[in-house]
Nucleic acid binder design. Sequence first.
DNA 1: CCCGAAAAGTGGCATATGCCACTAATTTAG
DNA 2: CTAAATTAGTGGCATATGCCACTTTTCGGG
Lengths: 162, 162
Amino acid sequence: MNEAQKPGFSRCNNATLRRAARSLGRFYDDALAPSGLKGTQFGLLFQIQISDEPAMGAIAEALIMDLSALGHTLKPLIRDGYVETFADKDDRRVKRVRLTSQGQAKLDEALKLWNVAQQQFEEKVGAEQAAKLRAALDAVADLDLAMPTAALRTEEAADQAP
Amino acid sequence: MNEAQKPGFSRCNNATLRRAARSLGRFYDDALAPSGLKGTQFGLLFQIQISDEPAMGAIAEALIMDLSALGHTLKPLIRDGYVETFADKDDRRVKRVRLTSQGQAKLDEALKLWNVAQQQFEEKVGAEQAAKLRAALDAVADLDLAMPTAALRTEEAADQAP
DNA sequence: CCCGAAAAGTGGCATATGCCACTAATTTAG
DNA sequence: CTAAATTAGTGGCATATGCCACTTTTCGGG
């Protein structure tokens, strides 16, 4: 097996990324623990806050996550009263989401904890370095990746055939 | 709210990392789909292969994942006959893991698919850039992060008080 | 040799994510 | 305007991960 053929000591970009995500995830989770929120929930609440009563699809797109996954993830937050949903006025298919006042308060509380973790992290790797890393990750996330081979034959056909 | 206090447009290192992981994860999952393995399973099988009948704890440590999580993740692979476990000769607490011949075959099969995805990715971002990114991610994963405040009072005490 | 502390896993419970099959509501052909 | 195609979500099923409470073994003193 030649060099290019095997993941060397984890040459797999995906495996490396997940490993780092697990590691950093635990750190942020620990930091946010006092608030009772997980890092993912914090991120989700924040995304909702900065958007204007976003539709579920909009959130899913922004976070590059499956729509149904978003629905699942949202449930505990709705159950705990941090978030509420309501139908769009013009398109009844669309369900919009917003923070409740309780959710806003919880987010504010978590934000303080988040700041500590974030600063701790940036202190370790350097603010500039961290910014570069985030930029690189955003670039990766927004890549237009698609398998060129068989699997997507359908899609290709759709593009090439009338 | 001042600049440093809010995650701007996702200034959260953790959120950015997870977002990228979801995105890239789907790409690799799609690529590996024909083999029936998920990206995580592929990575786990690979890790087992390059180790010498590793103990579960060793695998968990290498992948920076919770030991119990590893146990859960391993179940489907054992169920499908790709992996088998056996007790360590000297320490009955230790459970070692190895690929079955079937697992080895499956890994070889998946490796071909992985190569396509990996090359596709490196073609997009550049091999050097990808290597740098992996290095940065490994560095982040191996950071010795710990909250300085209350939560770890115990640990601090253990270090300072005899 | 016996006991309490430490180490390695297991099982249960909860969240995180995805895919697929469906349902409801819209939009677009004809 | 009506039927086909598209869009937005939901619910079910399966894997991914973590934490906590235990159980089983070891190990380190007395």
